[in-house]
Computed example of a mutant assay.
Amino acid sequence: MRYVHIDNVEPGEHLGRTIFSGNGAVLLSDGVQLTVYMINTLNRIGVTMIYIKDPLFEDIEIIDIVSEETKRAVMQRMGQTFDSIRSGKDFNTRNINGSIDSLLDEIMKNKDVLVQLSDIRTKDNEMYVHALNVSMMSALIGIQMEMPMNQLRELVIGAMLHDIGKVELITDDTSEDLKKHHTWRGFELLKNKRELSLLIAHVAFQHHEKMNGSGLPREMQGDQIHLYARIVAVANTYDNLLFDLSLGRRMMPHEACEHMMVLAGEELDREIVIQFLRTISVYPTGTSVRLSSKETGVVVGQHRGLPGRPVVRVVKSESGTDLEVVEVDLAKHTTVFIDSVLQ
């Protein structure tokens, strides 16, 4: 399959990966033949990139760190929790706790797989997919840092709920501090939950703080920011760079990784960024690229130790002339580089 911009999808092509709604239900199933109506609908609900099937790359397998079944279960439970908050009701954190163990179990089993954030986002599911992505990346950073399981669990719950303050809440509280920033609201929602560690509330409170003291809401700096919050800040920043249009334009993974290196030591914890970059697929499988040899192809394989040097299946030259299909392993062809990413 190939990862392509929605504007480049043609009617009659087949969807390569299932698209979910906000509550975890299937919106469009893997393999469905796309119609003009479906493509226009995906465009309307905010989908920009999708996977499509391609006979030249039908053997390409996207290896997920977490299964679709577990992702669906997590999103459903998050939906139930957030619905309670929106209606002003007390929310039951057991809904979240119940999905953390299966999530962590799968991440531990697949900890050597490079992360590529391949779930398709819509306006309806973006909050849930974002929370899921930040949780997965935070867990992998924690594993890289050899955190014990009890700390990993706290970290993942904190990552899952880091944006809970963004959920609409009916309240009579007129405190200016609560209105100032969703971090305050998240902290207030979580701090009195006895079944949760107070450190989880501090993740919601501190994940927009920056190492140089320029962050929100209290301009904390360095080690004043709890380790969990510093980890979640790194994962949150990366996911936002890829998908949050409010930051300007959406970056490709290789651009986001370069930007993260610029932020390291200033806004983000340098050591955590280093650990993070060891877990990320810089050029995700299915991405179309142009090589320095002027040939174009699709990324079909990864190297754990060399995320910036994937295996590329070359399918045509710069002029568009068909070539014999050849796989170029950039870890072995050291004089060939990825010149640009194509959408």
Results as ranks from 00 to 15, higher is better:
Met1His: 14
Asp7Tyr: 06
Glu13Ser: 14
Ile19Val: 15
Phe20Pro: 02
Val26Arg: 08
Val26Gln: 08
Tyr37Cys: 04
Asn40Tyr: 07
Thr41Ser: 07
Leu42Tyr: 04
Arg44Gly: 05
Ile45Gly: 00
Pro55Ala: 10
Ile60Gln: 07
Ile62Ala: 12
Ile62Tyr: 10
Val66His: 12
Lys71His: 07
Ala73Cys: 06
Met75Val: 07
Met75His: 08
Arg77Asp: 00
Asp83Trp: 00
Ser84Ile: 00
Ile85Val: 11
Phe91Pro: 00
Thr93Asp: 00
Gly98Leu: 07
Ser99Glu: 08
Glu106Pro: 13
Met108Phe: 15
Ser118Asp: 13
Asp119Arg: 03
Asp119Met: 10
Lys123Ile: 00
Glu126Arg: 01
Met127Lys: 00
Ile143Ala: 14
Gln144Glu: 15
Gln144Tyr: 09
Glu146Trp: 06
Met149Val: 12
Val156Thr: 01
Val156Tyr: 03
Gly158Ala: 14
His162Val: 04
Ile170Glu: 12
Ile170Lys: 14
Asp172Glu: 09
Leu178Met: 05
Leu190Phe: 01
Glu195Leu: 07
Leu196Ala: 02
Leu199Ala: 15
Ile200Cys: 01
Val203Ser: 02
Met211Ala: 02
Ser214Trp: 08
Pro217Thr: 05
Gly222Asp: 15
Asp223Ile: 12
Tyr228Thr: 03
Ile231Ala: 05
Asp239Cys: 12
Leu241Val: 03
Ser246Trp: 01
Met252Gly: 02
Met261Cys: 14
Leu268Met: 06
Arg270Ser: 13
Ile272Asp: 04
Pro284Val: 13
Arg290Phe: 09
Ser292Val: 02
Glu295Thr: 11
Val299Gly: 10
Val299Arg: 03
Val300Ile: 15
His303Trp: 13
Arg304Thr: 10
Arg304Cys: 05
Gly305Asn: 09
Arg309Trp: 05
Val311Arg: 09
Val312Trp: 10
Val312Leu: 11
Val312Met: 09
Val315Cys: 13
Val315Ile: 15
Ser317Glu: 13
Ser319Asp: 10
Leu323Ser: 09
Glu324Thr: 15
Val326Ile: 12
Glu327Arg: 05
Ala331Leu: 02
His333Pro: 02
Thr334Ile: 15
Gln343Lys: 13
